[in-house]
Amino acid sequence: MNPEQPLRIVIVDDHPLFRHGVTTLFSTMPDLEVVGEAANGEEAVALAEALKPDVMLMDIRMPGISGIETTRRITTASPSVKVLILTMFEDDASVFTAMRSGAKGYVLKEADKDELLRAIRAVANGEAIFSPGIASRMIEYFAMTRPAASEEAFPELSSREREVLYLMTDGISNADIAGKLEISGKTVANYITNILNKLQVADRQEAVRLAKESRLNY
């Protein structure tokens, strides 16, 4: 990043009025320049590759691929691009999954102008940044007794959900998982639905890939 040049920003959000509002705000900041806008994940990935912005402001819930998966793809393909999550969702599952996907910060849309600008500049400088309430919860989480290795990988999952995910990495069917855990196939299906929702992935294959990358054990 050249300190003499404005930070190059791409805004990723499916609401055009929100994108317009943020662009208007940044137009008054001499050290910030909006170089692109994306309404969905596919557009965001393409812009990241084409423009190589300093920071991408990323919503979580969008049509098509989620902001979480979009972030994962961008940080894998274009590691120099910093992603700052800007969303209305502050649940632990969204926060932990976003950070694991490669996001460098997590700010709520209710943040005021100064907080958002500080977050953008901090992320561009390689710092991790969170909205105050989220930061407090993360500090509390990491201050607790260190969890088991399987819990470290996916703290948003319950013990049984981690167990099901671990068995999924073996490539076995729902029926075989049900047999191993002595539960019904319907219960297994419900657990898998919960896992996909909490990890914010589209399908079983994505969940398994995440588990293997995190070296999930149980």
Results as ranks from 00 to 15, higher is better:
84 L>A: 07
22 V>W: 01
173 S>K: 09
175 A>L: 13
158 S>N: 10
62 M>L: 05
214 S>C: 12
49 E>V: 13
173 S>Y: 09
125 N>C: 02
77 A>L: 15
179 G>V: 04
204 R>M: 09
105 G>F: 03
49 E>C: 11
125 N>I: 00
74 I>Q: 02
123 V>Q: 02
120 I>R: 02
109 K>V: 02
153 A>T: 14
28 T>W: 15
199 L>R: 05
19 R>F: 02
97 T>D: 03
170 D>R: 15
168 M>H: 09
192 I>V: 15
101 S>L: 06
158 S>I: 02
37 E>M: 12
183 I>G: 03
88 M>I: 15
157 L>R: 03
191 Y>E: 11
82 K>E: 13
208 V>N: 11
69 E>V: 13
59 D>W: 07
120 I>Y: 05
16 P>S: 06
1 M>A: 00
102 G>Y: 06
5 Q>V: 00
122 A>D: 09
4 E>P: 00
152 E>Q: 14
134 I>R: 12
56 M>Y: 01
95 V>S: 10
136 S>K: 12
167 L>C: 08
111 A>S: 14
34 V>K: 08
146 R>D: 12
61 R>L: 11
59 D>M: 05
32 L>C: 10
36 G>F: 07
216 L>A: 12
56 M>C: 01
178 A>T: 09
164 V>Q: 06
103 A>N: 04
15 H>I: 00
109 K>A: 01
114 D>I: 04
207 A>N: 09
131 S>W: 02
178 A>R: 10
30 P>M: 06
122 A>E: 11
197 N>Q: 15
126 G>C: 03
162 R>W: 09
16 P>E: 04
26 F>P: 11
35 V>C: 07
13 D>E: 09
182 E>L: 07
43 E>I: 01
13 D>V: 01
75 T>A: 01
120 I>Q: 04
161 E>T: 09
142 F>A: 09
111 A>Y: 07
24 T>F: 05
75 T>E: 03
136 S>P: 00
209 R>L: 14
132 P>N: 03
53 P>N: 02
44 A>E: 02
31 D>G: 07
20 H>M: 14
41 G>W: 02
205 Q>W: 06
62 M>K: 08
9 I>M: 03
186 K>F: 13
194 N>C: 14
158 S>P: 08
96 F>N: 07
36 G>L: 06
122 A>N: 04
23 T>R: 15
80 S>P: 10
202 A>P: 01
113 K>L: 05
188 V>Q: 10
45 V>C: 05
59 D>T: 01
86 L>R: 08
201 V>L: 09
19 R>N: 06
214 S>R: 15
195 I>K: 00
193 T>G: 00
173 S>T: 13
63 P>Y: 03
16 P>D: 05
193 T>D: 10
184 S>K: 08
10 V>K: 04
128 A>I: 11
11 I>H: 04
61 R>W: 08
6 P>Q: 06
13 D>N: 12
49 E>Q: 13
186 K>C: 02
50 A>H: 12
96 F>D: 04
74 I>S: 03
155 P>H: 07
70 T>R: 04
165 L>I: 07
214 S>F: 15
149 A>L: 10
100 R>Q: 10
113 K>R: 14
104 K>T: 08
135 A>R: 08
49 E>P: 00
91 D>E: 14
46 A>P: 00
29 M>H: 10
74 I>H: 01
107 V>Y: 08
40 N>V: 01
57 L>S: 06
6 P>S: 04
2 N>F: 00
214 S>Y: 15
215 R>E: 15
61 R>D: 14
